[in-house]
Structures are given as structure tokens and as C-alpha cells.
């Protein structure tokens, strides 16, 4: 379509300005010298220095990363299994319920998931005496549960568009179904598994609502700490913290994107070479 509509281009520019002006403004004001976060008072990096002296912030960040690493790993294992189950096993008992269970957390308002997890953990403590206190374990369990379905979505969609004939060929050559899964299917979906892990990691690292329902005293994650600070208003040190977070995540995502793009291209080139060699 060569005749590009001027209206569409304008909307794109407007949309991207809308996306990025608030974030850029926040970054600029993190270098503000003034105490008031919204009025410019000269350049300064003192809020960053203050941030690194703050043990509370550092401890919260460490806790958040621990929970995110653990929950993303389990969520990826469970989510990949669920994605395989949905894409490769077309009929098993209770498949309808299963696909419902996999979609529901995606769309459920977080507050409902949060309150039901909280009541569940309280009742569990009543009935079996565990968890005596909510904290690291309960937050991690809740994060695994609601981030695994995102992994499932990614793995499932990747498997549905993957070429089944490769798996069939392996089967025809005498591999058992389990070997096919291990040697053919899993390598094919490994980029999807990796991006699923990344997504689960950032979802866990970012979550406020479900964490606030399932955590207990003394277990404040970074988003909860920011949440309690932000409720009091805009302050320059939160701006600094936000800038660091946005930069770390942004750079991480861009690097991951480049690596995965390169891997994808190499795979395509190899496939093409193999094809040409066989002609």
C-alpha cells in the first residue's frame, strides 16, 4: 500500500508521543535538584546516590528478584507442560475445563485472583496449619499460578504454528513419542520457552495487587515499597528508582529481542541451507 494516509501517520506519531512523553518526563525529573518533584531546580544526581544508600530499597529489590527468579522458573516448567498438553494432546478427559483454567487467569481482574488466593491461604492455615505466616512462599505460589498461563499462551501459539511434519518424520524414522518430544519439539519451542520465562519474570517482578493480598509482615517486595511511597505523592527519589527500573527492563528486553531475532534468523538460514543441500 504505497498511498500512506497522512491521518494514520499522524495518529502513529501522536500515539508514540503519548506512550513515551510521560516516561521521558519522569526520567528528566529524576535529575532534578529541587525537593519538589514537579518544578525544575537544576541538574543533580543526588537522588540516585540517596537510593543506593537506602537499605530498605535494596532489600526489597533483592526479595523481588528472588521471588521472580523462582516463580518464573516454576511457571515456565508448568506453563510449557500446559502448552504442550493443549497443542499436542487433542483429547483427554477434562480438556475443556483445562483450557478454561488456562485462559481464566489471563482475563480475570487481578483483585479477584488476589482476594481468592488470600482467602485460600488463610483457610489452608486453618485446615492444615500451613502456611503459618504469609510471605515469601505464598507470594511465590501465587505468582507461579498467575504467570504460568502467560507461558502457556506463548508456547501454545508457537506450537500451533510449528511444522508438525518434522515431528511426524522423526516418528516415521522410529523415534518414540517421548524422544520426539525431547529431541524435536522442545528445541523447536525453546525460543518461546525463553520468552515465556522472561515474561513470567517481569510479571512477577512488577506485580502489586496479587502480592499485596498474599504477602505478610516483613516481606515487602520492591513494587509494594514503591506503592507505599507513591501513595504519598510524587518524590524525586521514586523518579530515580523508576528511571533505573525502566532502563534495566528496557535494555534487557531489547537485548533479548535482538538475541532471539538473530537465533531465529540463523535457524531459518540453516533450514534453507539444509533444503538446498538436499536438492
Amino acid at each position: 500500500m504505497k498511498r500512506k494516509s497522512r491521518f494514520l501517520v499522524t495518529m502513529l506519531c501522536f500515539g508514540f508521543a503519548f506512550f513515551y512523553v510521560p516516561i521521558l518526563s519522569m526520567m528528566v525529573f529524576s535529575f532534578n535538584n529541587a525537593r519538589l518533584a514537579t518544578v525544575w531546580g537544576g541538574f543533580s544526581t543526588k537522588w540516585y546516590a540517596k537510593l543506593f544508600e537506602n537499605d530498605q530499597v535494596i532489600n526489597a529489590a533483592i526479595l523481588s528478584v528472588k521471588i521472580a527468579l523462582l516463580s518464573a522458573t516454576f511457571a515456565t516448567i508448568l506453563g510449557t507442560m500446559a502448552g504442550l498438553a493443549l497443542a499436542r494432546f487433542k483429547s483427554f478427559r477434562g480438556r475443556t475445563l483445562f483450557s478454561g483454567l488456562v485462559t481464566a487467569p489471563l482475563i480475570m481482574p487481578e483483585v479477584i485472583t488476589g482476594i481468592s488466593s488470600l482467602i485460600f491461604f488463610i483457610m489452608l492455615a486453618e485446615w492444615v496449619g500451613w502456611p503459618a505466616q504469609r510471605g515469601f512462599a505464598t507470594v511465590t505460589l501465587a505468582h507461579i499460578t498467575f504467570s504460568m498461563v502467560f507461558v502457556t499462551t506463548i508456547v501454545h501459539s508457537r506450537l500451533s504454528e510449528a511444522d508438525v511434519s518434522v515431528e511426524e518424520a522423526a516418528m516415521d524414522l522410529g523415534s518414540r513419542p517421548w524422544q520426539v518430544m525431547k529431541d524435536v519439539t522442545l528445541p523447536i519451542i525453546s525460543p518461546a520457552i525463553l520468552s515465556g520465562w522472561l515474561l513470567a519474570f517481569t510479571i512477577s517482578l512488577d506485580d502489586v495487587v496479587i502480592t499485596s493480598f498474599t504477602t505478610g509482615p516483613g516481606n515487602t517486595t520492591l513494587p509494594l515499597l514503591i506503592w507505599s511511597k507513591v501513595k504519598l505523592g510524587v518524590t524525586p527519589d521514586v523518579n530515580a528508582l523508576a528511571t533505573i527500573t525502566v532502563c534495566v527492563v528496557g535494555i534487557g528486553v531489547i537485548i533479548a529481542g535482538i538475541i532471539m531475532n538473530a537465533a531465529e534468523r540463523r535457524r531459518e538460514r540453516d533450514a534453507q541451507l539444509a533444503y538446498q543441500a538436499n536438492l
Binding site: 510521560p22 516516561i23 518533584a37 514537579t38 517482578l205 512488577d206 514503591i226 521514586v238 523518579n239 523508576a242
Partner: peptide
Amino acid sequence: TSFLLRVYAWMG
């Protein structure tokens, strides 16, 4: 990037 921080950006 963090949902919370995107809301916060608008508070500023």
C-alpha cells in the same frame, strides 16, 4: 516496564 511506574509517570 512496570505498570505501577507508568501510572506514577502520569502522577508527575
